[in-house]
Design a protein around this nucleic acid. Structure first.
Lengths: 271, 271
DNA sequence: CTATAGTTAATGTCAGACATTTTGGGCAAG
DNA sequence: CTTGCCCAAAATGTCTGACATTAACTATAG
């Protein structure tokens, strides 16, 4: 079968980046199996009406992200999901714009957050500077302003991502900081799930999913506030606890069951 | 000043990858300050006797790694260290081949290992498959065989990296697994430090650095063995403890002071 | 002094040819 | 029938030269 035929042209932009995004989304959607041969350069040129140079640049981006492997003479093959560079920021961007990210991926990312974020919250409480705090507060204010209208859910998700990313940054560790982008796909998945729930019941009565969502959102906001407050007051213990409660709330929204206990971090040090 | 003049040509290989490595190492060595203008494409073509196409491909790799930022009309600027994609596998390769990696980087990576690896050890003890165990054992055997001769230190380091990477893989979590490559620069830095120590005293007496290194290496090997054993026997608690002891040993070799306590992980769950 | 059009210099793209690597088939010697 | 070699096909990698696009600077009219 010609797997190429069903691929859309880049919606906007005539650059290599736009082309790369289309191809990346196709791979991330499972359009090819790992090990499958990817279309040849010339076929891509023909289908997308692009020069070989642009196609090659796009393929170069995919290769840098670990999505494909190219070898002269043999061709281009799609790599297995375990070889993808999940922590490449570009991957986060591609995944966030996806309708249905790999469940395996959402699972892995959330497991990571569950283990790491309480500790990162502690680090943030110990190390957050004034700039960090300002960034976190700005994101929180944005979440508050976009909490009411259902039409602003995407904007709300962006502020949510910014909130957590700011906390990663506040850890003041180069490695942990890099992982802040990881949660964008996770949070976007959450939003889309709640949107689907809300869309499935439109009667607007008291106990429907939409109201449940609204109530859950208020609760979530309150838990964010407590985490922010703990970081401001330099209380690592409470920041850890607040993060755990926040993740518990998120887990419920994702219909996940929590493990018996999370990670505890007695005494990280200030850097 | 012409910062280009002092850059060497690629030692081997005439491809874009070789060129990218030379440029990446220069940036990682602090050859430019963040915000500095990077040489123009045509200058690079002239200096390296390369076509513009190859130069552009090399610059594309650097851009994908977050080392530089390119904008049409303005030029290419070197990005700040906090924007580098430390978790890009290609970065690990470049950093590992470096004489003196950024101290700030080694610091951050080790702080991360200190916090995360005990937990990862637990995960590995819970989830390691037969293949995982075989991989870990193979790496351990390699470490044993190369433990005696000083000439095999590089090989020993490779097996050391493989050992820890295998444990990351055994966590069976897509995210944690990705971070296995992070420790390559860290371990290489350790090796080079011990090599420097050994080189500074050549009398060969009882208490000199070389003997200290040999004794330390035997001790390190034993701690690796205990971690391997804990993983094999599916004992998460002991795996965590063994990892902590191993990191303590590593910290001593890096002349670092340990924080009062590491991270503890009561009950991660099996995936 | 300001707004605007032109100039310059850098990166981005296009087009075609050639180089290199891998794979497979044909064919002859054993 | 198997083995070894050579050659051709197919794919990616590279070279070259031209043009397109973008961003900063400059001069100039108002």
């Amino acid at each position: 079968m010609d797997a190429l035929a069903s691929l859309p042209r880049p919606a906007e932009g005539r650059g290599a980046a736009a082309l790369a995004e289309v191809l990346a989304r196709a791979i991330l959607s499972g359009h090819w199996q790992p090990g499958d041969l990817f279309p040849r350069e010339l076929d891509l040129c023909q289908h997308f009406e692009a020069s070989r140079n642009r196609v090659r640049n796009a393929l170069g981006e995919l290769s840098a992200a670990g999505l494909i492997e190219r070898t002269a003479g043999r061709g281009t093959v799609v790599r297995d999901i375990v070889d993808w560079h999940l922590l490449d920021p570009q991957m986060s961007g591609w995944m966030a714009s996806l309708d249905a990210p790999h469940p395996q991926l959402v699972e892995a990312v959330f497991a990571f957050r569950l283990a790491a974020e309480p500790y990162i919250g502690e680090l943030a409480a110990l190390n957050a500077s004034g700039d960090d705090l300002a960034r976190i507060e700005r994101a929180f204010d944005g979440m508050q302003e976009t909490a009411d209208a259902a039409s602003q859910r995407l904007a709300h998700a962006e502020h949510d991502v910014a909130f957590h990313d700011a906390i990663y940054r506040a850890s003041h560790n180069l490695v942990w900081r890099q992982m802040g982008l990881l949660l964008r796909p996770s949070i976007v998945a959450l939003i889309q799930r709640s949107q689907r729930h809300a869309g499935s019941s439109t009667d607007g009565h008291t106990d429907d999913a939409a109201d449940g969502h609204a109530r859950g959102l208020g609760d979530s906001l309150e838990r964010h506030r407590q985490l922010l407050e703990a970081i401001r007051l330099r209380q690592p213990e409470q920041a850890r606890r607040a993060t755990e409660l926040l993740l518990e709330r998120t887990a419920r929204d994702l219909d996940k069951t929590l493990p018996a206990s999370g990670i505890t971090t007695p005494a990280p040090r200030r850097v």
